[in-house]
Design a protein around this nucleic acid. Structure first.
Lengths: 340, 340
DNA sequence: CTGAAAGCGCTTACAG
DNA sequence: CTGAAAGCGCTTACAG
């Protein structure tokens, strides 16, 4: 006899001598089943190592047990760390993570127009992705609980988790000012496709504000493509100008690491001739003795996941959508020192 | 009037004046629909921006349109890059990626015992995860096409993609020998929980073999936990011994980067006093001038995804399961030089 | 080429 | 507390 590929609810019902309706109720922990019957059913289900078919369950009105996670990309420290935080949280409750990476404007556009997550997940976490008004509308049309991480705060009152990027920039620049720098440049990240990233804008805003508060105006800003190579290029540009600033605030550690590479290759010593500071506390920042403003990335993912799960849990008390801003922290290493 | 939440096949059928049977056939590209009807249906589906319900489709015998990807973790360069390669490939054909991270033995055990992917995906990609015989059996019980990336070659004739880690180690050690080193140590990665990773074993095998071929035996080997901190610790141990080797082969770039950190902090100059080489070509290797043996990670992910998709495509010609070994390549940077 | 119909494995009112 | 039955949105033989 060929064993059946899969055990279904009918098998469990037969083995425990009840109808599938009772099995369904027992398995979902719903009321309306006597304790004795419930016990019998659960034991039968265990014996057969039965798992509910998510397809059938969802089709009949249940949840999918899946949450979509939308990220710009996965092969960057920030996003993969975020993902690890989310995945760890989902794993504890058996929710499946459907990954959507939107590396460029085309992918983003396609995603919001075709909404491939439709009917496939119970909720969505959107990490950093900048949304146009139309894209927001499309997202709403999914009709799913949504949690945003980083990036713009959603218009409506939807949950958001992140850090204060403007403040982070101010902390970085504040440190440079405090140790005596007055000639501070910035290497800013810009999107090749012209997409405006909330983080980018907040960081340069913080840069200008902090300098402005110190009475410094019209600073040197170079905008390059995000990444190590962009940072390297940014520093090349600064080096090509007549006067070298005494310090450089870099949009992020990846930019700063590239800048450090250029400085090393050019024989400019850090921090003696120039101070460099980034944002993030990327693992490589420690290796390169890069002073930075750390942000808790994994934690952001964890919190976002918890919020989504709370929204999905019918048992959970109804709560107002929360905006969670996690603290950032100056980490002083060897790449910054007072100007000479 | 309140618009319906979701458009279903019936809506498309009505709009194009045919039965849902024809809609289903047209949408799935099956024969038995006249070109004119097909065109009408496709256009109606587009107008309504209809997407097939994966739940219903699968329940009725179709595919889920999902593939499970199992990785040890996502927050490490190797895995996130692999994931990016896989995700990019899936995106082109609209397959959803269900991510499963198995960070420790407990998670791994739970995963293979409860097989949470059961009934949820059409196929599986297993990246690097070491499998016991029992776990292999359990995986087989899923009855799904499976592609392995890295790690052990599966016993049966299942597709595998990866690099030759033993050869990679030999390339690294070969380089050290070629430039004159004779006293070569290794910092090896070991699993805290005692899990035996195929990659780890292959790399130390290559190390010993290459030294053995050069008539060198009984080399210095230090085993530490994988990662930057492990590498740092490994180098501390080497430094604490009476004689410093002239060169160190590191299990991977992450280990090597940690080793470099220790050397810098200890004031030991690289490559003057000691040469260091790693494996992977991690982005930070370039920043740290680390000589290494590069492997194409994203490409491995891409190929694995293509193989899985080919197995899922009924149109695709039946092919024998392939073993694809991608080349590794020595990348010489500043961390290695002839001994003095 | 096209459609009516059975059936996939569940959940949930609706009756007992 | 328990079960018969409708229905979720599809796919696929089976008839035309």
């Amino acid at each position: 006899m060929i064993p059946k590929q899969t055990v279904n609810m009918t098998d469990v019902a037969q083995r425990s001598g009840v109808s599938i309706a009772s099995v369904s109720r027992a398995l979902r922990g719903r009321p309306g089943v006597s304790p004795a019957t419930r016990a019998r059913i659960l034991s039968a289900a265990r014996d057969l190592s039965y798992v509910v078919s998510p397809e059938a369950s969802h089709l009949a009105g249940g949840a999918t047990g899946r949450v979509g996670v939308v990220v710009p990309r996965v092969d960057a420290w920030f996003y993969s760390t975020m993902l690890a935080g989310i995945a760890g949280e989902f794993d504890t409750v058996g929710v499946d993570l459907v990954l959507c990476a939107l590396p460029d404007a085309t992918a983003r556009h396609r995603f919001f127009e075709s909404l491939p997550l439709r009917r496939k997940v119970d909720a969505v976490i959107v990490v950093s992705v900048p949304l146009t008004a139309r894209e927001h509308t499309r997202l709403d049309q999914l009709g799913l609980p949504t949690v945003f991480v980083g990036g713009d705060h959603p218009d409506g009152n939807q949950p958001w988790v992140g850090v204060d990027d403007e403040l982070a920039a101010q902390q970085a620049v504040g440190h440079l000012l405090r140790i005596g720098h007055r000639d501070i440049a910035m290497i800013q990240a810009g999107d090749r496709e012209g997409t405006r990233w909330a983080t980018d804008e907040a960081r340069i805003r913080g840069f200008h504000r902090q300098l402005g508060d110190a009475g410094l105006t019209d600073p040197n800003v170079v905008t390059v493509e995000w990444g190590i190579d962009g940072g390297a290029r940014g520093m090349e540009i600064l080096l090509s100008r007549p006067l070298l600033p005494t310090a450089v605030f870099c949009h992020s550690d990846e930019i700063a690491l590239g800048a450090l590479r250029t400085l090393r290759k050019s024989g400019v010593s850090v921090p003696q001739q120039i101070s460099v500071i980034g944002v993030d506390d990327h693992p490589a920042a420690d290796l390169s003795e890069l002073t930075t403003v750390a942000q808790p990335v994994r934690e952001q993912g964890r919190i976002a996941a918890q919020q989504v799960l709370a929204q999905l849990d019918p048992e959970a008390p109804e709560t107002a959508p929360t905006v969670t801003t996690l603290p950032t922290r100056l980490v002083i290493r060897g790449s910054t020192a007072p100007p000479r």
